[in-house]
Each structure stands twice: as structure tokens, then as C-alpha cells.
């Protein structure tokens, strides 16, 4: 039987459509029911409580976060990777350094720094591949599959919240969490507000880990959320307010 050219083309076309159609038939995707629902997740860190308990808490928030997320401990400060860490007042708020009175008051207060999950994030604006992007619930996410390692986001972040994998991080992870990935060399990483725990209905690990309950996690857009009450009652500041990045991490200083 001779096949005409036209028939062959038709057949080819049909096969293509068939392949495409059968590939498209898979399952569907939904959000987990148990997931926490919010429109703008935020943290309020009570530095007064932090200071009171600092001698005994053992910086559990940092330890738990880093071990849960397989964050390596690289001894070389220059190549260091950190998602949440402790910093002195004058480094966290360098613009207030000249105010001696304030500086004196807060000099011994520990400040926990992490990604601010800004409402107007410069890192997201500059990323050339959308590897870092803002989710609808306000979390500034990292897609490590897509990051090309250009480090434009690190230049853009005014808070120094981002770390780059200058070398393979794996040899520096002493104890591994088998349920979470590590990162590979050549990508930028940072705190993701424990998006993977939020999907399972759990609060971020640092919040849960704090023995003094000094960190509160909540939804700024939900007026009934505890975090809004706390922010109304207490004196709360954010880092580098003048840059109008609108951080989602508040520090309760009074």
C-alpha cells in the first residue's frame, strides 16, 4: 500500500497530538488542607525576652533551623552560609549607631537576623530568572532548581540576608536531615519562612524552637491574628525602614 505524502503528514500530526495529549493527562494539584493560611506572614521577635533568656536558651532557634534545613557550618567566615543568626544592635541597625543613648540601652541585646520577606523585595526585582519570587502569602521564595548563581540578589538585598554556595556545602553538614534537601555549589540560599512546614500546618521552626517563646509568627493581613495585637501594644521596629522595602520581620524593643 502506497502512503500518500498528505496522509503521512496527517498521521504524523495525529501522533504528535496524541503524544502531547497523553502526556497532559496526569493528576491535578491542590493545596493541602492542613496548610496554614495567610496573606502576609510575619515574625515579631521580642528582643527583651531574647535578652532575658539568652544566657540559657543556647540559641535554639538558629541551631534548629540550620540542622533542619541542612545548612552547612563553614568555618571560613567569608564563605559562610546562614539563614538566621545573632547580631549586635549596631550591626543590625547601623543607622542608629550614632545615637549613644539608644546604643547604650540596646548594646547587649541580641538581635536575630534573617530574611525579612519584604513586601517590596529588591532581590525579587533584580533576579533575571524568577528563581527568587514573592508568593501570594508574602514569603520570598527561592527556587534552587532555577538559580543561575549570578548573585544580583545578594547585591540588591540591603539586609545581607542571602548566602552563596561558594563551594560544595555537603562536606560541612555534620548531621543530615534526611527529609530535607541540601543545596549544591553555585546557588544562593536563604530563609524561606519554613514554607515546607507551613504546607504541613506547622509554624516556622525557629518560632517553635524558642524556649522563651520570644518569636511570634502570624498573618499581618488578619486583624484577629495575635501578631497584630502584639504589634499594636508594643514598640516595634524594622530594619532600614527608610528603604521602603517593608520588611515582615519586626523587633519588639519596648
Amino acid at each position: 500500500m502506497a502512503i500518500k505524502r498528505r496522509d503521512l503528514l496527517k498521521l504524523g500530526g495525529l501522533t504528535l497530538i496524541g503524544t502531547a495529549a497523553s502526556a497532559a493527562v496526569g493528576g491535578v494539584y491542590t493545596k493541602p488542607q492542613e496548610a496554614l493560611k495567610g496573606s502576609r506572614w510575619a515574625l515579631a521577635i521580642d528582643v527583651v525576652k531574647c535578652k532575658e533568656n539568652r544566657a540559657t536558651c543556647g540559641l535554639k532557634c538558629v541551631e534548629v533551623c540550620h540542622s533542619l534545613h541542612n545548612v552547612p557550618s563553614i568555618p571560613d567566615k567569608k564563605k559562610e552560609i546562614k539563614w538566621i543568626w545573632e547580631e549586635k544592635f549596631e550591626h543590625a541597625f547601623p543607622e542608629h549607631e550614632a545615637n549613644h543613648y539608644l546604643n547604650e540601652k540596646l548594646h547587649d541585646t541580641p538581635f536575630l537576623l534573617l530574611c525579612n520577606h519584604c513586601d517590596n523585595p529588591p532581590c525579587v526585582r533584580v533576579c533575571p530568572t524568577k528563581a527568587t519570587f514573592k508568593r501570594e502569602d508574602g514569603i520570598v521564595m527561592m527556587d534552587y532548581h532555577r538559580c543561575i548563581g549570578c548573585r544580583f540578589c545578594m547585591a540588591a538585598c540591603p539586609y545581607g540576608a542571602r548566602s552563596f554556595n561558594w563551594i560544595d556545602p555537603r562536606p560541612f553538614i555534620a548531621k543530615v536531615n534526611p527529609e530535607y534537601p541540601s543545596r549544591m555549589k553555585g546557588v544562593v540560599e536563604k530563609c524561606t519562612f519554613c514554607y515546607e512546614r507551613i504546607a504541613e500546618g506547622k509554624i516556622p521552626a525557629c518560632v517553635e524552637a524558642c524556649p522563651a517563646k520570644a518569636i511570634v509568627f502570624g498573618d499581618l493581613k488578619n486583624p484577629n491574628d495575635e501578631i497584630n495585637k502584639i504589634l499594636k501594644e508594643r514598640l516595634a521596629v524594622r530594619r532600614k525602614e527608610e528603604l521602603t522595602t517593608y520588611p515582615s520581620v519586626f523587633y519588639l524593643i519596648g
Partner: peptide, 24 residues
């Protein structure tokens, strides 16, 4: 879907639900 769309549950063709996670 999980990372970019925040959809962490896969509903298979037979209706069974699976949590999206390679390792877990």
C-alpha cells in the same frame, strides 16, 4: 507546583492524594 505555585498535594488519576516531596 510545590515550589512555585504553593500546591503541595498531588491528586492522582485514581483520586488518591500524595504530598509532593521527593525525599519524603
Amino acid at each position: 507546583q510545590a515550589i512555585r505555585e504553593n500546591k503541595h498535594v498531588y491528586v492522582a488519576k485514581d483520586g488518591e492524594k500524595y504530598f509532593i516531596n521527593l525525599q519524603k
